[in-house]
Simulated assay, not measured.
Amino acid sequence: MVANIRTGATVGGAIRYNEEKVNRGQAEVLFWNRMLDPFDSAGRMSHERCMASFEPFLQANRRTTNTVFHVSLNPSPEDRLTDEQLGEIAREYMERMGYGEQPYIVFKHGDIAREHLHIVSLRVDSTGRKISDSHEYDRSMSILRDLERKYGLHPSIKGQELQDREELRKVDYPKGDVKQQVSSTVRSCLRHYRCASFGEWRTLLEAFNVSAEERIGTIDGRDYAGMIYGALTDDGCGIGTPFKSSRIGKEEG
């Protein structure tokens, strides 16, 4: 099993990404913890109800900028797990990572070859204090190895965690070589995810500090369509000079 842990400043974006998957039948809500029922009276997932569960924690926040904890748990395609088992795995993982008393919601995605989980929570507790992220990656790997043994799961391929972690790293503008960072992130997202709309694609990229903008128009009577990519800060603000998708590769345009 492989975990991809992400952070960010706006939990609404992480919820919206998963909500769009649910609305398109590509994901479902498996369960939620210490939250309001996330569905409205018509049985549709409600972004507003989810945010209402997170809001008291965000208001109590003291100094933490990146308040979002968003993790995907990816079993091997060879593992066949029931929803009950997936729920147990998600609950134990969150408990041992220090998020057992946090509000969080668990989604089961089926939009790629293997079913996997997405869990959205907050990195600040009810008093506004940040939950420790010390040695987060190492702790996560240790928990996953225990879960593999407990549930008889296929161990992840050696080096796969490192590969996923490196490929899906957030763009960090101060590190420089921004076009290369953005290009790498776009290509990696194309390999790991399938999005049914531009809105889903844009929301996914924003989680990795990448902006995407469609450009559609007519020049000399000929229609054209393209995409512009750029870098974002952790607060979601554009930074630097965007560039055409053609500079990444034809498949991204």
Rank of each mutant, 00 (worst) to 15 (best):
V178Y: 01
L205G: 01
A113F: 12
M35I: 09
A212V: 09
A60L: 04
E251D: 13
N66L: 04
D235S: 09
E148A: 03
D83V: 09
S76P: 09
D235I: 04
D234K: 04
P242M: 09
M94R: 07
G100S: 03
P77A: 04
R91F: 11
I89M: 10
E88D: 14
P38E: 07
G25Y: 11
A60E: 06
I219F: 14
E148R: 03
R165I: 05
D83Q: 12
E115Q: 13
E136Y: 04
G43P: 06
N209V: 06
I157H: 12
Q26L: 13
C50A: 12
P103Q: 04
G98R: 04
H192T: 07
L168M: 11
R63W: 00
Q102W: 05
D172C: 10
S76D: 15
D138E: 15
I216G: 03
V11P: 05
I15P: 05
R139S: 06
G217H: 04
R202Q: 14
F54Y: 13
F107R: 02
G176I: 08
Q180V: 07
K175E: 12
H154L: 12
G240N: 03
P242I: 07
E161N: 13
L162G: 10
T185V: 15
E136K: 03
S46Q: 12
V2Y: 10
V106H: 00
T203V: 12
E213G: 06
G240Q: 04
D234G: 00
E161D: 13
H154F: 12
T7G: 03
N74T: 15
E166W: 05
R191L: 02
S132M: 00
A9N: 07
